[in-house]
Each structure stands twice: as structure tokens, then as C-alpha cells.
């Protein structure tokens, strides 16, 4: 008789360390706590502030439509969006893609979500009210709702994503882009680009911008389960611009270790979606490669070795596959 339960095979900590895998404790202790000052967190946690900083430093972002921060303005939201064909409502202090409502078209009465579902004025009214009451914000604090134009990604990644906007995540350490992946929404992830919900992570080589490795739920895959597209055929347009944008973000904020989420609009090119001061570790699985050696390499460089972002990008491209 065979025992149906298979005891999980653990990797040895030594082998993981030799492969340069960064663990959660070490990420928090040696990188986030050390290079990210608590007082700088609003730079990335407050989306309006991030947007303002981005404009000041020449980082392109999605087109700003407006913001609502008190309940009595909520009923007037339509005035803000009546002249734009599509829009996204985001909580100002949201995280992990929570509370984001995408409207791809509307006729003044009916609003259409990316999957074609319709919703009415009241639905959007309630959604904004929920955002203001702090349902999606960190710690449940009162929040504001941010209105932006949709990013039109249709002709760039349409074969590779189920509904949601695919975005490129770049880990930036002391101004150097160190690792990258693109996150593709799936049916399982409900059209969202969150890896723990079942989105696909495809590691992208810093050097070439070509896909390295694709993983869903920590397991390697070759094709997109919903669109059947071969993931190795994925191409990131304007790769150099992605790197430049990510490195430029490091001038926006004193944070030393963060993740930059960049999406590509078919007309405007790469745009910064948001920054994250606690970027996740799943990027290592999507790359089939650990972060630790790359981070250690940058820590070992003398201060001010590379003064400009071009020099930093050049160093990253030479050293990080």
C-alpha cells in the first residue's frame, strides 16, 4: 500500500543561501529596515504624493483626472469623468491592487468594467464611499479616491494577459535596477496581477529585456493557461526606457530599496504605476534566480562610483542577466 501523503521536501538553508536566495527576515532586517526610512514611506504609500514627485522628476505616469477626499463630493464624481472615455478609481493609500476599479467605457449612465460587466452610478458611488471610509487603506484609516486615465495596453500584451493590465516590476536598489519581472493576469487571479492570487510572473533579463523564466504559484510554466500564448515569445517594448524610468524613480525618494511598477501605454509608452517600499520576494521565483548576490554586489561598490543614472543602468545591464 502506498501512502498518499508525500512529505514535503525542504531545501537546505545552506543550498538556498549558496543560490543567493533572499528570505523574508533578511529582506526586512538587512534591506527594508536599513535602507528605507520610515519617514519616507509616504512617498510611495500616498499615490497622489508619488504622482506629484513623479511629475517633478520627469517620470511619466498615467494621466491624472482628479481626486475626491470627502463624502459630500462623492455624488459629484460624474462631473469629473464625464469628459474622459475611460478611467480608473484607486484608493490613495491602497496596497496589493486592492480597491482598484477600472472603467473602460461609459455612456454617462452605464459603466463597463474590462470584463464587459456593467455597473451603474450607485455601484461606483458605493465604491468611492468605501475607499473614503478606509476599507482598502493601510490600517483602515480614512482615505481619498484617485481618478486616473486607463492605460491602453491592448496591442502590446493582449496575447499574454487575461483582462488586467500587465505591469513590469523592477526592484531598484540604491538607484540600480537589480531584477525584473512582468506580471500577467489570469482567470485564476480574477484579472488581477497579484502573484499570490495566481497571476503569472515572468522574469525579464535586465540585460536584454527578454523573458527568462515563467512561474505561476511558485511552479514553472511555459504557456499562458488562459490565452495559450507561448510566454517565451513575450517582448517588452521600450526596455531601455523601463530601466531609465525605474532608475529615475530612485531620485524621487530617499528610499534605498523599492519596487517600481511600470506599465506600457500603446500611445505614451512606459508609465509608472506605483512604487512599493516592501516589494515581494516572488520575483526570485519568476527569475529562477536569487536577489542576494546582486544586492551584495551593489553594497560592495564604493559610494558614488556611478554618478548618473545612465552609468548605473549600464552597470546593471553588464552585471544582471
Amino acid at each position: 500500500m502506498r501512502f498518499p501523503f508525500k512529505f514535503p521536501q525542504f531545501a537546505s538553508p545552506k543550498a538556498l543561501h549558496e543560490s543567493g536566495v533572499l528570505g523574508m527576515n533578511e529582506r526586512n532586517h538587512a534591506y527594508i529596515m536599513r535602507y528605507n526610512n520610515r519617514k519616507d514611506y509616504p512617498d510611495v504609500d500616498d499615490k497622489l504624493r508619488t504622482k506629484k514627485l513623479a511629475v517633478e522628476h520627469g517620470v511619466s505616469t498615467a494621466e491624472f483626472v482628479g481626486a475626491i477626499d470627502c463624502q459630500f463630493q462623492v455624488k459629484n464624481f460624474f462631473k469629473m469623468v464625464e469628459n474622459v472615455p475611460d478611467f480608473v478609481i484607486k484608493p490613495g493609500h491602497g496596497s496589493g491592487g486592492r480597491g482598484i476599479l477600472v472603467i473602460t467605457r461609459h455612456d454617462g449612465k452605464t459603466f463597463y468594467k474590462p470584463n464587459g460587466a456593467r455597473c451603474d452610478f450607485n455601484f461606483i458611488y458605493e465604491h468611492i464611499s468605501n475607499i473614503l471610509s478606509g476599507l482598502y487603506s493601510l490600517g483602515g484609516n480614512p482615505d481619498y479616491a484617485l481618478f486616473e486615465r486607463c492605460i491602453d495596453f491592448s496591442d502590446v500584451y493582449s496575447r499574454f494577459s487575461y483582462q488586467g493590465v500587465p505591469d513590469v516590476r523592477l526592484i531598484v536598489f540604491k538607484g540600480y535596477p537589480v531584477m525584473s519581472m512582468i506580471r500577467l493576469a489570469t482567470k485564476l487571479s480574477d484579472g488581477r496581477a497579484n502573484l499570490h492570487q495566481g497571476a503569472i510572473g515572468v522574469g525579464i533579463s535586465i540585460k536584454t529585456g527578454l523573458p527568462l523564466f515563467a512561474a505561476q504559484h511558485n511552479k514553472r510554466i511555459e504557456v499562458h493557461p488562459d490565452t495559450n500564448a507561448n510566454l517565451s515569445e513575450l517582448r517588452i517594448p521600450f526596455w531601455q526606457e523601463h530601466l531609465r524610468l525605474a532608475a529615475l524613480c530612485a531620485t524621487m525618494t530617499p528610499l534605498g530599496y523599492f519596487g517600481a511598477d511600470i506599465s506600457t501605454d500603446s500611445k505614451r509608452g512606459p508609465l509608472l504605476l506605483e512604487l512599493n517600499a516592501r516589494p515581494g520576494l516572488a520575483i526570485q521565483i519568476a527569475n529562477g534566480c536569487g536577489l542576494l548576490k546582486r544586492l551584495r554586489l551593489i553594497e560592495s561598490l564604493p559610494e558614488n562610483l556611478h554618478a548618473t543614472i545612465e552609468e548605473k543602468i549600464k552597470f546593471s545591464k553588464e552585471n544582471f542577466d
Binding site: P13, L16, M24, E26, C289
Partner: peptide, 19 residues
């Protein structure tokens, strides 16, 4: 509070990264 080693669950999660 100063432990920076791997968590037990990470030994499973990052298993695929061992060369």
C-alpha cells in the same frame, strides 16, 4: 528580532531556486 535566516516555509517556497 535579529534573526535573518530563512523561514521554514521559504525552504519549500524557494526550493526551485536551488541550483
Amino acid at each position: 528580532g535579529t534573526y535573518t535566516g530563512y523561514r521554514l516555509t521559504e525552504l519549500l517556497r524557494f526550493k526551485s531556486l536551488v541550483k
